[in-house]
Amino acid sequence: MPKNNKKKKLLISILATIFSVAFFASGFYFGQDYDKNSNYNNNDDRLKIFWQVFDKVKNSYVGEFDEKKAIYGATKGMVESTGDPFSGYLDPKDSKMFLTDLEGEFEGIGAELAIKDNKLIVVAPLKNYPAERAGLKPNDTIVKIDDIDSITLTLDQAIDKIRGKEGSEVKLIIIHKDEATSQEVKIKREKIKIDSVSSEIKKINNKNILYIQIIQFSKDTTKLMENIAKSIKNNQPDGIAVDLRSNPGGYLDSAIDITSMFVDGEIVKEKDKNNNMNVEKATKETVFKGIKLAILVDEGSASASEIMAGAIQDKKAGTLVGQKTFGKGSVQNLENFSDGSTLRITIAKWLTPNNREINAKGIEPDIKIDNPKDNSRDLQLDKALEIVAN
């Protein structure tokens, strides 16, 4: 969970100098003449053209000109000019929606999206929600959203179009990975509300195996995991299988906390734009250390999930089972502004404890196993349970 005295850091496939909206707004009301009374009121000549264009549009455009909308649009454009699909500026409306997502409650189809190779792709559909029921899978390409070509949309715009009120319908044209033909899918939106962690004891070969599924690394994840640790304190399981499949990421602090429960020492390293390295170490007691461990991963396991999987693999603390992970090795800072808007900006790359960079590469599992396409049996889970039960 983000610490109160730190900036919030995100690792998710839907944000160090801050350029605030309030700064732009400070020039609104200074005259109209560019040479004498321009809105531009700063010694930085790089902003002169911006204010000149702003004044020209404001004074000359024949229609109505929404100053606030223009400023939000300009700020979004500035961040998008980085070309980084994981950075973005969200106006108050979009920001509220984004922050609600991190709390695990929203209305939509239940899928994490990202831009990869200039295509809108599904990182992971959430289990038992509309996207998964409609057949969407990790690395599917979304070609169209309600007849609009997705290539013309930013990530935030695409998410906004797929979102909608509970009960309404969205039409998608998708292409499954390794298939050439597209197909139309109509999905009815639902209210999505999930706890980030669930668990159960499975009896395998007369042994008690603790199965933990982590949907995403949210604000509640550390607390939920601590509750699980307390519940087994006097009756430790013979093995643990942690399911990170289709987990798109979340808060960095949460990922570090959870990983710390399994391994100690270095968890992850961050390398900033000046190649300065910051090492994040374990933050919690290693309550699960020494218990046989398997980690389930797939193409939908991204970012914070890969931090946990990478640290477990580097330290040989468990066995990774499933498919190669997504490959998102960047860290985003989340900055909230007084008007309710939010900046999400990539500030660093992250590396595993053994200095592996996984961005666009992913992490190969120790045991690669594919589930049947018809999902008739979960071979990956069967293998993970077998490993920790033997």
Results as ranks from 00 to 15, higher is better:
Glu200Phe: 00
Asn118Thr: 07
Glu357Asp: 15
Ser182Val: 02
Phe23Gly: 12
Asp370Thr: 08
Val388Gly: 07
Ser341Met: 06
Asp146Arg: 07
Pro237Ser: 04
Ala384Val: 10
Ser87Tyr: 06
Gly322Gln: 04
Tyr40Lys: 02
Ala304Ile: 05
Thr286Gly: 00
Ala114Ile: 04
Pro372Ser: 05
Ser341Asn: 09
Ala180Asn: 14
Ser20Glu: 15
Lys8Trp: 04
Gly73Asp: 13
Thr181Val: 07
Leu320Arg: 10
Asn276Asp: 13
Glu166Val: 08
Ile267Val: 14
Asp382Val: 00
Phe23Ala: 07
Asp374Pro: 02
Met97Asn: 13
Asn4Ser: 13
Ala302Thr: 08
Ser26Cys: 02
Arg163Ile: 06
Met308Cys: 02
Ile71Gln: 04
Leu351Ala: 04
Ser341Glu: 12
Ile363Trp: 11
Gly63Pro: 05
Thr346Tyr: 03
Lys56Thr: 13
Ile204Trp: 03
Ala282Thr: 13
Glu166Gln: 11
Asn278Asp: 14
His176Val: 01
Asn37Met: 05
Val287Met: 02
Asp366Glu: 06
Trp51Arg: 03
Asp178His: 06
Lys161Arg: 15
Asn39Glu: 10
Tyr29Met: 04
Asn359His: 15
Pro353Leu: 01
Gln313Asn: 13
Lys171Tyr: 01
Ile345Cys: 07
Lys193Asp: 09
Asn276Met: 01
Gly31Met: 08
Asp195Gln: 13
Phe30Lys: 12
Ile256Arg: 06
Gly110Met: 04
Ile345Glu: 15
Gly104Asp: 04
Lys328Ile: 06
Lys165His: 05
Gly135Ala: 08
Lys58Tyr: 11
Ser301Met: 03
Glu166Phe: 01
Gly290Glu: 10
Asp140Pro: 05
Asp264Gln: 12
Asp238Ile: 01
Lys203Met: 13
Glu107Phe: 00
Lys127Val: 14
Gly250Phe: 07
Lys93Asn: 13
Ala134Arg: 02
Ser305Ile: 05
His176Ser: 05
Ala384Ser: 06
Ser199Leu: 03
Ser150Ala: 15
Val268Leu: 03
Pro85Gln: 10
Leu113Asp: 10
Ala74Lys: 03
Pro237Ala: 02
Asp84Leu: 02
Ile345Gly: 08
Val170Asp: 03
Asp195Val: 02
Ala282Asp: 13
Glu166Thr: 14
Met261Phe: 09
Gly167Leu: 08
Ile173Trp: 05
Lys58Val: 06
Lys68Ser: 11
Gly249Tyr: 11
Lys368Leu: 01
Glu280His: 14
Lys8Asp: 11
Val79Pro: 02
Gln157His: 00
Asp146Cys: 03
Ser38Thr: 14
Asp195Asn: 15
Asn276Val: 01
Asn274Lys: 13
Leu153Glu: 14
Ala22Ser: 15
Val263Ile: 14
Ser150Pro: 05
Asp366Leu: 03
